[in-house]
């Protein structure tokens, strides 16, 4: 009888006591999760209305961010995307609180570390977002300037500027996250330096004749330049 009591009944009683203690935590966490889902939906709707009221999509289009969403395959507008993101962040935060309210030590520890890391993730996301905006803006500016300068590979110049600016921001974001801090920086420096060196060599070899012709023409006969409409007539 004693044996059965010790082997079976006592553990079951302990489990039952623990279960009774756990039940309120579980119910609390389920309630928190439900509140999170409801609040997430409400926030999504509120922010969608706010973004539409301030014409966020138009602003995004103006600064070049719209391109990402206008591209084939991307769903909805920027307003809808950010509103949905805010909704999911709210749900995620409540889910994390709900899990923590279960009071399971190992999970509590994990969540605490996660929350300490969260500001880095947020900062990295902000850097990436700004990087994307700047890369689009500067890429478009470079494209237009190249076209107006008559550079045949204008599209490539625009894409190159866009890529370099975005890679720079991605490097900064990864540094913020602490992912391969030195590796990323060194890799970026090597890649960027390599591109510049490659361009310098390409220009040096490929443009030798052009440079010689240009110098001969300008040093010897500075006034005998080819004229076209842009340097011959006054458009005003």
């Amino acid at each position: 009888m004693n044996f059965i009591q010790r082997i079976l009944i006592e553990p079951l009683e302990r489990f039952y006591e623990q279960f009774l203690t756990f039940i309120p935590n579980l119910l609390t966490s389920i309630a928190l999760l439900i509140i999170g889902v409801v609040l997430g939906s409400i926030l999504r709707l509120i922010f969608l209305k706010i973004f539409r009221a301030i014409n966020l999509d138009k602003i995004a289009q103006r600064i070049g961010l719209f391109e990402m969403f206008a591209r084939k395959g991307a769903r909805g507008s920027l307003s809808a995307f950010i509103a949905r993101l805010i909704g999911w962040i709210a749900i995620f935060i409540f889910a994390a609180i709900a899990v923590q309210s279960l009071r399971i030590p190992s999970i509590e520890n994990l969540i605490e570390r996660f929350f300490l890391y969260l500001p880095n993730v947020f900062t990295a996301l902000v850097i990436l977002a700004f990087g994307y905006i700047f890369s689009n803006f500067l890429g478009r500016a470079a494209l237009i300037a190249s076209v107006n300068a008559g550079i045949r590979r204008a599209g490539m110049v625009g894409r190159f500027v866009k890529l370099v600016v975005f890679i720079l921001s991605a490097t900064m974001a990864m540094e913020q996250l602490g992912i391969g801090r030195d590796t990323v920086l060194i890799a970026f420096a090597i890649v960027f330096g390599g591109i510049v060196l490659a361009l310098a060599i390409a220009f040096g070899f490929g443009g030798r004749d052009i440079a010689r012709d240009y110098l001969q023409r300008n040093v010897n006969h500075p006034k005998e330049q080819e004229k076209d409409i842009e340097d011959h007539i006054n458009p005003l």
């Binding site: 289009q61 478009r140 494209l143 237009i144 190249s146 076209v147 107006n148 008559g150 045949r152 204008a154 599209g155 625009g158 080819e226 004229k227 076209d228 409409i229 011959h232 007539i233």
Partner: peptide, 26 residues
């Protein structure tokens, strides 16, 4: 008299049409 290089102007227009088309679409 004014000299005009039409060929070069056409090249610039064509380059613009090829590269700036996506912007003009807005």
């Amino acid at each position: 008299p004014v000299n005009v290089n039409i060929q070069r102007m056409l090249e610039k227009f064509r380059l613009g049409a090829r590269e700036l088309g996506p912007i003009w679409e807005y």
